[in-house]
Design a binder for these strands. Structure first.
Lengths: 113, 113
DNA sequence: TTAACATATGAACGCCTGCTCATATGATCA
DNA sequence: TGATCATATGAGCAGGCGTTCATATGTTAA
């Protein structure tokens, strides 16, 4: 810390600073979207329920690779699975994901200035 | 792709599928928030403008480490810098960042069910 | 100018991550 | 049941990332 007049931490923002645990959980959530493959999977699912084989086609990767990523997405509750016969259909787990995706999209549009 | 009745890609969601470039940019945006240190930096800045030394105290890391991370955040237009004498003050670059953070927070709260 | 402070940058190293390949599990059909 | 399809999982490897340490740049004060 330095020795100047006043650090300028505004009262603002209402919410308290993230504690270490929250920071890690939050980071984990963003990190899971921070990969081109996964963000494409999530985006595809934002358009509707799809099975592993379809998703594999959409992103152009092996079904194994996709399955690995879906496991990650599942573990963080980004997507949710439903078995129907041999296929397993995936969909977004909750509504925030879509909002998150949209906000992100808006940011990159603005950042292209 | 499999051989079943109908793939089930709903017309829905209004927006078209992300092309490869957009997916990479979007992923890069999320990825930069996908690290505990950086998400704490951004969260701190959501409460007000701070200089490197302050931020270093907040996250408990060297000023060098913080400076490296700030560079990343700057390059993706997450934060913006302003020099005032010897210090450089950082603040969030646009309003979406705050929203992004909030949505993320809401998600982890819901995911704790 | 010189010294001291605040921040930035480069190199290097260990850890983590995303893929592939091989194999296992689950489900359907003959 | 046995064969085949759809998905999941484990091991392993290459590339990327976050930190530290050393050093450079920019700014103020003496």
């Amino acid at each position: 810390m330095t020795t100047r007049p006043a650090p300028a931490v505004q009262p603002s923002a209402a919410t308290p600073l993230l504690d270490e645990r929250a920071a890690e959980e939050l980071a984990a959530t963003f990190a899971v979207l921070g990969d081109p493959t996964r963000v494409r999977l999530v985006d595809a699912l934002a358009h509707g329920e799809l099975c592993v084989s379809d998703l594999s086609t959409v992103v152009g990767l092996s079904e194994s690779a996709v399955s690995h990523q879906l496991r990650l997405l599942r573990s963080l509750r980004i997507v949710r699975a439903r078995r129907a016969g041999r296929q397993v259909y995936y969909q977004l787990d909750d509504a925030h994901i879509r909002t998150l995706l949209d906000q992100g999209r808006r940011h990159i549009e603005e950042a292209r200035a």
